[in-house]
Design a protein around this nucleic acid. Structure first.
Lengths: 342, 342
DNA sequence: ATGAAAGCGCTAACAT
DNA sequence: ATGTTAGCGCTTTCAT
């Protein structure tokens, strides 16, 4: 079709050269003018800028990226666990994503979001890194991909991961001290009378494994039992899974340490349905301190992570890494928020 | 330092030509081989593919996009209202985003997420569209940008918007029949004894305005009053705002129709804090039916939108539009879910 | 079945 | 202060 689709009766000006022709200058000058390069004569620049506006010209970012070898795009990878629909719907990750979006937008970056299913795509990390589409990569959650992330980090500096920090690890991570958080939560449960604690969460994810380890730390000192109960974060199955676990196990337990608030809230609902009193019969502590946690009935006792601070830290580190600095990881202290469930 | 099977030992092969040189063929052949083009000799192809794997070669997507004039990336724009932090944290949008990510990933597209603040950037839509970075655009929520979206739609086919459908509009939209939903909610409130209903939400967003209109429809027939109470979705202020509104107004009202479940849940919490019984003194109906709605105390009566179906519909329409079809909008029927708050 | 060559639209080094 | 030119890394004719 050679017919104009634009309401304006002019031939669309889509490229720098189009605009250059109209302005009676060279493409180079247009490029410089639009970039605000001080070399161009002010009058020329203003004329070109006006022309660009009038004709609705937008430079093609692909071409620019290719030429500059810089895309101004940050990749965000969300590794999903075995269960292909795990986690992305988890409120915590989503909240983190929102803050990352804030922080990156503020710094002039676009976000390229990619959900990855490591089981189905072994090569997810290198593929994303090598795509040439991104200037840096943020990974939200290590899932069970710790080793693969380590490998990638050896050859790729501009990557920051949200997750757990292990002694001597090579990738740059921002996260909460999960083990300490787990200990705080469990200590609280014990203080409020727990003897048989269920840890609800998937310990194959390293963050959760650390929380579980913290629970064991706390229990070790007091003779309290801590039993892991695998529960995934998939929103469609979460409720059923929690229900099944609790129904089956609760004659024996008197407390739940849920790996996330989402899980804690689901448990709370289930216990209510079962007619089990919280915290009198069963105590619950969550993890994250989502806004929601304050609004449950009774309000949830939980371990707070400062998600917003974490997101901004990730972006800050990433930008420093993009400019070549080999930054250290940041481990943030968790804080126990005592409400009414324990 | 390790120098093993990793590409470190050899000069990295980053480009097609690098690989071509190693394989002893031309760049064109490598390109064809990697694309699975049937023209290339099977043996050659296999050799090249193996070589690519061994050397960890990944084609540069920017270059490919530029050449093919196709990026395999879909833009997702989230217009934020006046209050610059409105909405993105709203669970509804986030849930929608998750499903969109599912649907797009399934179809082989990447997602480029951009939060836009229309007040600060008049040109947000055309800038995104014209960037050359995306093959199509999904807009999550019309906010107060209806006219601008209409304008853009005239010159840009591959765009689908989540939001409200108005008679004769030109942009393709997927959404719930908000007005009907508003009517259903309000009818329910009236049935359960409401006489003075507060509509909680920002009616400058067209989706919410339609819900409010539906409320008026329902009230019109029964002499019940409906008073709008502007409330934004900003997560930090939401609670305070709801509190202020309710504290000030509740000697007069006996029901709340909240424009979203998020708002409804905040109201519920506030009423509880004020010692007002729900639903005996004040009835509440929400909108969305988030997973959470079933878990509040008492469980929330609300109007269900099928978010997942909506997301898949958006992607389906978008892909048809990308291939040139001028698709119709889809308006999905809302469904009243009666629980315990009204 | 493969190679050579011409760009995609932009930027930057090197001219003037 | 501006023009000219040579690519960025890939895909795709057009030849052979």
């Amino acid at each position: 079709m050679s017919e104009q689709e634009t309401p304006k009766a002019r031939p669309a000006v889509r490229t720098l050269s189009d605009l250059a022709r109209i302005a009676g200058v060279s493409a180079g000058t247009v490029s410089r003018a639009l970039a605000g390069n001080s070399l161009v004569n002010t009058a020329t620049r203003e004329r070109i800028v006006a022309l660009a506006r009038d004709h609705g010209f937008r430079p093609n970012k692909m071409a620019s990226s290719l030429r500059r070898q810089k895309t101004d795009v940050i990749g965000i990878a969300i590794p999903l666990g075995h269960d292909s629909r795990q986690q992305i719907s988890d409120t915590f990750f989503i909240t983190l994503l929102g803050h990352l979006a804030d922080a990156l937008t503020e710094r002039g970056y676009d976000l390229m979001l990619r959900r990855v299913i490591p089981e189905r795509d072994e090569d997810w990390l290198d593929r994303f890194i090598g795509s040439g589409m991104i200037d840096g990569l943020l990974v939200i959650g290590q899932s069970d991909q710790f080793d693969r992330i380590e490998d990638a980090a050896d050859g790729y500096l501009p990557m920051v991961v949200w997750g757990n920090h292990a002694e001597g690890q090579r990738h740059c991570v921002v996260g909460t001290d999960n083990r300490l958080g787990g200990r705080l939560a469990t200590e609280r449960l014990i203080e409020s009378g727990a003897r048989h604690i269920y840890f609800l969460g998937d310990t194959s994810a390293v963050e959760f494994a650390a929380r579980y380890a913290g629970a064991l730390d706390a229990a070790g000192r007091s003779g309290v039992t801590v039993t892991p109960l695998t529960s995934h974060l998939s929103s469609d199955r979460l409720e059923a899974e929690v229900a099944a676990n609790l129904d089956r196990s609760f004659e024996r337990g008197d407390a739940i340490f849920a790996a996330t608030d989402t899980l804690a809230i689901a448990s709370l609902a289930r216990l209510k349905a079962l007619g089990i009193a919280v915290p009198d019969q069963v105590r619950i502590v969550g993890f994250d301190d989502l806004p929601l946690a304050a609004q449950t009935t009774p309000p949830l006792t939980t371990v707070r992570q400062d998600i917003r601070a974490g997101a901004f830290a990730m972006v800050d580190l990433l930008i420093r890494r993009i400019s070549g600095e080999d930054t250290e990881s940041i481990v943030m202290p968790p804080r126990l928020v005592v409400r009414r469930t324990a």
